[in-house]
Amino acid sequence: MLTGSEIEDGLEDAMRHPDPVIDIAKLSLTFQTNDGPVHALSDIDLAIEPGDFVSFIGPSGCGKTTLLRVIADLERPTAGSITVNGVSPEQARLNRAYGYVFQAAALYPWRSIAKNVALPLEIMGLSRAEQDARIKKNLELVNLAGFEKKYPWQLSGGMQQRASIARALAVEPNLLLMDEPFGALDEIVRDHLNDQLHQLWAKTNKTVVFVTHSIPEAVYLSTKIVVLCPRPGRVYDVIDSTLPRERTLDMRESEEFLKIAHRVREGLKAGHAYDD
């Protein structure tokens, strides 16, 4: 979507966004399976700027989770380049540059909520005082103050997922990677958590990469929506949101919102997301 000459645009871009948090160029990932190679990701180009809230949306099998896992160094690409915070994903992982929130809360049942949040901090070797301060701060941030001594199985699914977000935030990364974190929750809890996540993002000014298969969720939360389509997994469309940064739940009925949602749906349709 180039409007001016490439040079002008490039210059302007460089002035506005000196360093993308994530820079992906010509990235491909092919899994070798017994049934032959599977092209999970093909020729991905994507730059994510600091403070962005980027959603990856697409049908199952489009590679959105795989792409997130590549950013997190949980998968290795087979071609192309990627940098996270200006370094390789592996180095970024070793620097603990990101917090990762999984589809399930993945809390350890033998640890209390506070101890679960402390897990990455123990691994990082922080002092007890620092750990306690971060536990307190981040549990307050996700509205779980007072639940420190509870065990995960004593909490509802929504609370568990909030605890896992607190655990990811406790690392104090500038980048938050979220893989369908609310996928297993019901619509009402989900709306509520979306709202909380939005406020959290606005408050902390972190960069968030968010995988979802819900169009309203993507449009409501994102400053940038990346539509992926399957076979092979590739970027079909990148939509910069025209909604204001500050979002409210009733914005979901606005014309602007519906327009963006429509464009996402069109992208999914054109990318054969609705085919069998």
Partner: peptide
């Protein structure tokens, strides 16, 4: 994977 993201 969680432990891996913490570089444990």
């Amino acid at each position: 994977d969680l432990m891996r993201t913490y570089a444990a």
